[in-house]
Design a protein around this nucleic acid. Structure first.
Lengths: 297, 297
DNA sequence: TCTATTTGATAACCCATGGTTATTAAGTGT
DNA sequence: ACACTTAATAACCATGGGTTATCAAATAGA
């Protein structure tokens, strides 16, 4: 005698519980009525519980059967979901991607990525962490991060890097700064000002680029404050503690009493890149990278 | 070819996933190794997902296998519970509630609950198990426990938590400690003592709260011993190995040569909460939760 | 009341398939 | 090179799920 419940029993049971009619249930299952009868009987023997009350003219569920029905529905459904998930895992459409980023990536690039991810790979979870360039690179090397959004020109061996967003720079001035936007022609006009910049070790490339902007304009900037947060920089500018040069896209998302003048006529650009480890085995990472790079936008 | 997964497959799979060794797994299952091999292979064919990576010398789970393992554990466990419930229903009982608890819940809350249960729902069986906060939360997530009595501020998504008992803290001193109760005014007087506390990973919230009590009194306690049992802590205090700060209600039920001073004048309280899974399907659980929360006391 | 019809249960049979033993191929260690 | 171990393969066997044929009981209709 079969002494173990099987999923087959569950399907048979459900059919009978729904039809409350052996012959119809058997038809639905594409098996013969006697076979079904025997399986249900066997099921009751294994569980040691009567599940149906049968009179010759009517079949109905016992209390236990009623309960079992809802449980089996739950289990079978859970199983279906699990099977689907399995396929997703097999195809890499699953798992978690740990993403590091500089604050400025949060304006455009990351929201875009997350929207696409949710659309194409809803099974992929993300874990976001704001970190400096260096911290990101180190974390990626140690497999503590799957990918990072950085502003840097070169990365250690074993890492890949690809630009994902190119941005002009903008000058940030206090709202009441005595220079109208239309009067502005050249960064050289700001030579005498104090500069507030992102810390050199937070983003060396940014720092060097701003330096080169000033050098091209014929002066070496006096840097009075450094920070790692755009918010802080804006606040300092707002309070007349200096002026700043930042990637243009950073201006969106903040409500500050400052004005921005975009530097369209200089060659320098702020490049945001995505960086990841060549031999990272996280299948979900591939999908992220592809979404980021293979778009036609 | 069998084109339908059966529970048999699940048991076989679990054995291999646990042993990571076909022969040993087959032994455990009391079947032959080739039979097992074939069943696992069939399972992979049915699911269309590779579950194991086999080299001749090592068997390991794929990501999908890892996931399936935890899901199967959940399903099989759920099934066991369902079977038990079925018997209970057959016998006219209302089922079983599996309750986890910290030792301190045994003083008041659980006895009260059991008395009420016996009164209102004499058919409900209980299964009590003393476990750490973390063990309880994990067991509840896996449906290995229906509810737990914990001391913690937050729980993972999908779990509910409700305070059921609020308690002052008390200082535990050796009986002959040279400080009379009426001379005691402030925890600061104990700054120089060794402290004996419940282990941090047994109850992080308790640990942090005691720390904050000491900090409020202007010192950082020297913790010389940690334990997970009140009995042990009292014994250590009794033998002059240190003093303790514990939830007041713990003092009842032990016969020790120690004295207690209740800390009524500090803001910290020891909160015992009941925790359960939002979508737990055990009908008996509802009755328990209602008894615990809908009392007017 | 007698039939015709329908129901689920039973009996007897068959073969698909899960489990068996024997063997092979591929690593691993000495 | 050799002994040993592992998982896979091949060939066989027998349990038991599914089949058809039939039965017994209940209902409906005349």
């Amino acid at each position: 005698m079969g002494y173990q419940i099987e999923l087959r029993h569950f399907n048979y049971f459900l059919a009978v519980a729904e039809e409350l009619h052996y012959r119809k249930a058997a038809e639905k299952l594409c098996i013969s009525q006697p076979g079904l009868s025997r399986q249900i009987k066997q099921m009751e023997e294994i569980l040691e519980v009567k599940l149906f009350v049968r009179t010759k003219k009517k079949v109905s569920l016992t209390a236990a059967g009623e309960y079992l029905k809802s449980e089996i529905e739950f289990i079978l459904n859970h199983l279906e979901v699990t099977k689907k998930q399995l396929r997703h895992i097999r195809d890499g459409n699953f798992g978690e991607v740990r993403i590091g980023f500089l604050g400025s990536a949060m304006q455009e690039v990351i929201p875009n990525l997350l929207i696409k991810l949710k659309d194409k790979f809803p099974g992929i979870q993300t874990n976001l962490e704001e970190l400096s360039n260096n911290a990101q690179v180190n974390a990626i090397l140690k497999d503590k991060l799957d990918m990072g959004f950085v502003r840097t020109a070169r990365v250690p061996d074993g890492l890949n890097i690809q630009p994902v967003y190119t941005d002009t720079f903008s000058v940030v001035l206090p709202e009441l700064y005595p220079l109208l936007t239309r009067e502005f022609t050249d960064v050289g006009q700001l030579a005498a000002e104090n500069f507030i910049l992102f810390a050199q070790d937070y983003s060396p490339l940014y720092f060097d680029t701003v330096m080169s902007i000033c050098e091209d304009a014929g002066f070496t900037p006096k840097v009075s404050h450094k920070s790692v947060h755009a918010q802080t920089i804006f606040k300092l500018v707002e309070n007349n503690l200096g002026i700043a040069i930042i990637p243009t896209s950073l201006q969106y998302g903040f409500q500050m009493k400052v004005k921005f003048i975009e530097l369209k006529n200089i060659p320098q650009r702020a490049v945001l890149s995505v960086c990841w480890k060549e031999d990272n085995r996280n299948p979900a990472l591939r999908h992220c990278i592809n979404l980021l790079l293979n778009e036609t936008k």
